[in-house]
Amino acid sequence: MSYNIIYFDNNSTTQTDPRVVEEMLPYFTEHYGNPSSVRNKYGFEASAAVNLATRRIRDTIGNQSAKIIYTSGATESINMALTGTITATGIRRIITSPSEHSAVLDTCRYLESLGVEIEYISIDSLGMLNYSELEERLADKRPSLVTLMGANNEIGVTHDLLRIRELCTFHKAVFHSDCTQLYGKTSDFNQFTLPDLVSLSAHKFYGPKGIGSLFINSKSIKIEPLLRGGGQQDGLRAGTLPVPLIVGIGKACEIAHTERDFDMAVYHVCRNELMEVMKKCPEVKLNGSPDHRIPNNLNFLIEGIDSDTLITELKDFALSSAAACKSSSGKTSHVLKSIGLTPEQIKSCIRIGIGRFNTTSEAVKLRKQLTAKIKELRKKKSDGK
């Protein structure tokens, strides 16, 4: 089914790139062997496809020694990184921030119930980390696991992974980063080698849903598996490997890396066009740092306008008012709350996620309709309608 709606919700999920689908299809119906059964032709072909995907991923980050663990998505990767590290190492303190994805925060709350101490680094009104506070907390030399995201899924703010890496190295802390939103939205892929552990989901960068990965960049890192069974993936994640999905994430990573300059150009041109909304409607404010953010994300606070009403009125576009997991549960955004927005202000925020397949003309159309609809709804409110 094809919808006559322009999709601008690419921080929620992305269209699977047709080139990724094309590469996956033969592994459903032709090369369908089990990669663990390498003594027959089908299994050997499947195993070779998995190895190729792994090489492609390693190539994008420039680290051929990185261990790539395939998971069902970033949520599982995050659970594996945090719970697996805590269990294997005996570390009893995690340092994180209140603006992390719920997959991190919920896992931390679970570990807290088991006696692990959770400490939160404060962020400012632009969503920026207090790095001095992180350094102060690490200075006591207690064994720690630091988990801080590469880019925020709601307001797009990026964190300085190199600075965090340096602090963690100096104070001998393990560093995990949820880079789900950062991968494919930066020209610098080498930064994905900075954390000890990196979590990703393919569907955020034009790959298939249901597959993610955990990069283990340091050989000294110990992780206890969440799943046990057949001993696949060096015993770290049991279960028959989903070859078509692994082929898909490998191809999606390759495209994200080789075409990064094209993607960045699309994001910047469309974002600059949509930023014009703030000139036409001065009451519209940008949530998050204007300087330290991924280029495909805009999160607007439109005072006095209900975001759900606005999104419903913009029938030609697919937008969101919060992270997809928050929208489906009806919960208030903890990210927007953490940067100081009131409950009423949070109800007046929309998120625009620009994608690889968006065009400048689509951004112009959204800018014009968004501007007009804001003015229309504001007039109705002032008229008491």
Score class of each variant (00 low, 15 high):
Ile216His: 08
Phe175Cys: 08
Ile352Leu: 04
Ile118Asn: 06
Asn130Tyr: 00
Ile346Met: 10
Ala265Leu: 08
Ser37Thr: 15
Ile61Arg: 03
Gly62Val: 04
Thr85Cys: 15
Gly355Tyr: 02
Lys209Tyr: 06
His176Met: 05
Phe300Cys: 05
Val266Gln: 06
Leu138Val: 01
Thr312Glu: 14
Leu52Asp: 10
Arg260Phe: 00
Asp196Gly: 11
Ser177Val: 10
Leu370Ala: 13
Gln369Trp: 03
Gly330Ile: 07
Ile216Cys: 11
Pro195Phe: 02
Pro98Gln: 07
Ile61Asn: 02
Cys270Arg: 04
Ser199Gly: 11
Ile78Ser: 02
Ile354Pro: 03
Leu319Phe: 09
Glu30Met: 15
Asp160Gly: 07
Lys381Phe: 02
Asn152Trp: 01
Pro343Tyr: 00
Asp196Leu: 07
Ser72Ile: 09
Ser338Trp: 06
Asn217Ala: 07
Ile249Ala: 06
His292Thr: 05
Met264Phe: 03
Arg163Ile: 05
Asp17Gln: 04
Phe317Asp: 13
Ala48Tyr: 14
Lys347Phe: 00
Pro208Asp: 07
Gly230Asp: 15
Lys67Asp: 00
Gly235Glu: 07
Glu376Lys: 15
Ala66Tyr: 01
Lys347Trp: 00
Glu224Ser: 15
Leu377Ile: 13
Thr13Cys: 14
Glu166Val: 08
Gln369Tyr: 05
Lys365His: 13
Ile350Trp: 02
Gly288Tyr: 05
